[in-house]
Write a protein that binds this DNA or RNA. Structure first.
Lengths: 189, 189
DNA sequence: CAAGGCAGTGAACAGCGTTCATCTGAGATA
DNA sequence: TATCTCAGATGAACGCTGTTCACTGCCTTG
């Protein structure tokens, strides 16, 4: 992966990621992770500072995973795909990831860390994927607005808070928002 | 407020609401609320079942508060205001509430209850406000999509996760989404 | 007055995140 | 080889958490 300073650190991260993905971030307990990783709580704290540090490490891993999936979906598209269709495919891949990994998603966006911190470089990398596909014609603010709108649908879909939602409604909602938003924001290319 | 079966129940709810609003839902501790409300933990559990019950009660109160503010903003509008402008005003009031009460907002949408439950009637009442203003011309699914989109912006604004966001950007983002979405969803009236 | 029921109680339990005095053992030094 | 050194690992202990339940004492009913 990325700079695992020690074997123990890698083992802790692996076990923590497994627990977060399977049971959610609130199931992450220091003693449990340490035991499964074959070290003591003290070592975990020496390496990560606090438990939030472990969650943050898992979250960075999640962002890399998401970036991979987005890129994979993009490269699966025909070469001649129009810009708006590429952005829509990106949004759909975003939705798919949230629905496929609800616990990782919740850890990323809903888990309340004790100490807020700057977004890591992995977060910027994700937005860069979006910016690259949008091209020069779209302002950052407009792009952020559209991403936030799509994010809202995914957020509510993942946490099952969407009222009146028959099957497949999320995809239609995203399509509605993006077709309306993209035509208003810039001319399709 | 609403059916406070006993004085103690009302006192607990009042104190719990104060803590949630001031410090966030994760600062809510059974012993602390009980002590401040002048009763024992046992009584709190007799009345609310678990601590989540207390959070849920606060959340219902929050929804009623939000409904009041939305209605107030609507009635402050000139009689002849166009439908799209009324819906936009609603969205802006939604944003204002989230920014003014970030801790209540987080308890409502981000706090992870141990036991998921059906949305209370207060949630339906909120969506009914929206539906009433949208009128017959807008499908429930389209309305939900637009609400989710606006919600996404508010969610990210409240949790300070909006990248590249200068002051006042949230309002412009919501305006962008709604003008685009509403014209696409139905003709303005 | 006696009996019954029941709301209110808080010590106790098992767990949590976090700390830090203690220990350990690999490598440097003599 | 014997000794020293010290970075890193350790886990008991601390103060907290949500939750339970045997107990209390009051109030109503007979």
């Amino acid at each position: 992966m990325q700079k695992p300073k020690s074997d123990t650190e890698a083992a802790i991260l692996e076990e923590a990621a497994r627990i977060v993905a399977d049971e959610g971030a609130q199931a992450l307990a220091a003693r449990r992770v340490a035991a499964a990783a074959g070290c003591s709580v003290g070592t975990l704290y020496n390496l990560f500072g606090h438990l939030d540090g472990v969650v943050r490490a898992v979250n960075r891993q999640t962002m890399r995973l998401l970036a991979e999936q987005l890129s994979a979906q993009l490269s699966a598209l025909p070469q001649a795909t129009a810009r708006d269709d590429r952005l829509t495919a990106l949004a759909m891949a975003y939705l798919d990831f949230g629905l496929a990994e609800p616990n990782r998603w919740e850890a990323l966006f809903r888990y309340r860390l004790q100490t807020p911190a700057e977004p890591p470089q992995e977060a910027e990398a994700l937005f860069d994927i979006l910016r690259a596909e949008a091209g020069e014609g779209v302002e950052d603010e407009a792009l952020t607005a559209l991403w936030a709108a799509v994010h809202g649908v995914v957020e509510l879909a993942v946490s099952r808070r969407l009222p009146v939602a028959p099957a497949g409604a999320e995809r239609r909602m995203i399509a509605l928002i993006l077709t309306a938003g993209l035509t208003s924001v810039a001319s399709p290319r």
